[in-house]
Amino acid sequence: MAKKVNLNIEIIAYSNLEELSNEDQKLLSLAEKATFSSYAPYSNFNVGAALILENGEIISGNNQENAAYPSGMCAERTAMYFAGATYPNKTIKTIAIAARKGEENTFIPISPCGACRQAMLEYEAKQEKPIRVIMKGVNDIYELASVSDLLPFKFTQKDLFE
């Protein structure tokens, strides 16, 4: 007999920036700033990400497009891969994400694409600690306690070996 299963994901919605900690405000500000140096001539969709490591180091990234579309890279992966290459044994505490269209200065709601969710989940599984996610919206700022909340039916290395 089929049964209904409910997934519960807790999302904290902040109505203004001042409700965030100073560290989270700084991360979100850096994610917003990173959108202004993204390379998005094809989509005109500028995405920025900023993450903080356990040692306090902050890394920003943005989307980098390419005429051969699959060769581009999203902001979240740009930042995470740089962190992994530069600080391979440091835990990522939080990642903040912001986006805007073209030359507009208004930030729009954004959540990571499927590929970024999977890549972020890999880092979360590798470090065996959750990575908080902060996403900038038009009127609200959303916080999730873990990347796992973005990908409830996750695929990790455990699935390969169990």
Rank of each mutant, 00 (worst) to 15 (best):
M80W: 08
E65T: 07
A31K: 07
Q25D: 01
A79M: 09
E54I: 14
P112D: 08
V47R: 04
V133R: 05
A79E: 11
N55E: 14
E128R: 09
Y39S: 15
L121D: 09
I110M: 12
Y69E: 03
N44A: 04
G61S: 11
L51R: 08
C74T: 13
G61I: 10
L121V: 01
K93N: 15
Y123E: 15
C116V: 04
Y81H: 07
E18P: 02
E19D: 10
R132M: 14
R100L: 05
A68R: 07
F82V: 12
L17G: 00
S71C: 09
K101Y: 09
T91F: 08
A40R: 03
S111T: 15
S43I: 04
P41V: 03
I58L: 02
V133W: 12
K129M: 14
S29K: 07
Y39C: 08
P70E: 08
L28E: 00
G102Y: 00
K101R: 11
T106E: 13
A13F: 01
V5N: 11
F36C: 07
R77F: 10
L53H: 12
S21L: 01
T106C: 02
E23I: 04
I59P: 00
Y81K: 12
E18D: 14
P130L: 07
T106S: 10
I108E: 06
I59L: 14
I52D: 10
I52M: 13
T78N: 14
N46W: 04
E54H: 09
G102A: 02
A96C: 09
L17C: 00
N8W: 10
Y123A: 13
I52S: 10
A115S: 14
Q118E: 06
S71Q: 14
L27G: 04
Y69D: 02
G137Y: 00
P130E: 13
C116N: 06
Y14T: 00
K136L: 01
N89D: 15
I59C: 05
R117S: 15
I58M: 15
S15A: 03
Q25I: 02
R132D: 15
N66G: 09
N105T: 13
G137N: 08
N63L: 01
F45Q: 12
K93C: 14
N89E: 12
E104V: 00
D140W: 01
S71R: 12
N63D: 14
I52L: 09
K126Q: 11
T106L: 08
